[in-house]
Simulated assay, not measured.
Amino acid sequence: MRITTQAMTSRILADLQASQTRLATLQSQVSTGRRISQASDDPLGTADALRQRADMAGIARDQQSVSDAGNWVSATDSALSQVTDVMHRVKELTVQGANGATTTAGRAAIAAEIGQLIESVKSSANAKVGDSYIFGGTATTAPPYTAGASDAYAGDNGTIARSIGPGVSVPVNTTGAQVFGSGGGDGKLLDTLRNIQAHLSANNVNALGTTDLQALDANLDAVTSVQAGVGATQNRLDAAASRLTDAATTVAKANDSTESADLAASLMHLSAQSTAYQAALKSASSIMQPSLLDFLH
């Protein structure tokens, strides 16, 4: 079968074009450090890379959620610690007021200090994370308590949860009604503090030394119990953060293995392909050079 010069030329040009394509691919791998630049480079690898990127994005969202939850829980713990300190001070003052040696004027002064401590408790109850009030339930845009004589709770009993993994969420909030109450004889902290203040003003030594101290101790136990639950939530968040960090590292390594080029191997292949391309050019030039005049000679 006769092979024409045109057929030979077309074949040589096609081979050179293919060699140039391989050379360009290797040059891209070396310069970018990536094995896959487009889906056609490795369809299966591209599918794996897309799945891994989706996994990394999901892990990043969960990490941000855990971080936000940690801020919320940390602020709650800090506020409850402040309240606990106030309660210990109130207990000291209540014991002092229940002492028969304390004068009426002395109890009045203690009642005034209790009033200031009540406002301090309300200030802690209005703690915020960013623009959100942490003790208001899902009503996070307005303070759950107002300064002054009213101890009404303006929040709700809704639960705020944060995702810590696929299909897993953790409640992070504590409602003010649960800890501080709404006043009005509910026996919670604010109601107890108001009773102590009233009994100091009325010189009711018997109530101060019995029911008031008992109610204060009960509320102190309740706050301590809530704070223990907050600590348990923090431990769970810490464990989730550690797990997500490990998962992110694992997926990132897998993605790097899928998408990144082996630089040493790419350099070796690039050198070999470059040599092959130069040889092909020389070969093509010698084959395509003869013309009719060369044959006539």
Results as ranks from 00 to 15, higher is better:
residue 197 Q to Y: 09
residue 199 H to D: 15
residue 200 L to G: 01
residue 201 S to T: 15
residue 201 S to G: 15
residue 204 N to C: 07
residue 205 V to S: 05
residue 205 V to P: 02
residue 206 N to S: 15
residue 208 L to T: 03
residue 208 L to P: 00
residue 209 G to S: 02
residue 209 G to N: 03
residue 210 T to W: 08
residue 210 T to K: 08
residue 211 T to K: 06
residue 212 D to C: 05
residue 216 L to V: 04
residue 217 D to R: 07
residue 218 A to L: 04
residue 220 L to R: 12
residue 220 L to K: 12
residue 220 L to N: 13
residue 223 V to G: 01
residue 228 A to T: 15
residue 231 G to T: 08
residue 232 A to Y: 11
residue 232 A to F: 09
residue 232 A to E: 14
residue 234 Q to D: 15
residue 234 Q to T: 09
residue 235 N to A: 14
residue 235 N to L: 09
residue 236 R to C: 05
residue 237 L to A: 02
residue 238 D to T: 13
residue 240 A to V: 04
residue 241 A to P: 05
residue 242 S to K: 08
residue 243 R to L: 07
residue 243 R to E: 12
residue 244 L to T: 00
residue 245 T to M: 09
residue 245 T to L: 11
residue 247 A to Y: 09
residue 248 A to C: 08
residue 248 A to K: 13
residue 249 T to W: 10
residue 253 K to T: 14
residue 254 A to Q: 15
residue 254 A to P: 06
residue 255 N to D: 15
residue 257 S to P: 12
residue 259 E to W: 03
residue 260 S to T: 07
residue 261 A to S: 12
residue 265 A to E: 12
residue 265 A to N: 08
residue 266 S to R: 01
residue 266 S to F: 01
residue 269 H to G: 08
residue 269 H to K: 15
residue 269 H to I: 06
residue 270 L to G: 00
residue 272 A to V: 07
residue 274 S to N: 05
residue 274 S to F: 00
residue 276 A to D: 02
residue 276 A to V: 00
residue 276 A to S: 07
residue 278 Q to T: 14
residue 279 A to L: 08
residue 280 A to M: 07
residue 280 A to C: 03
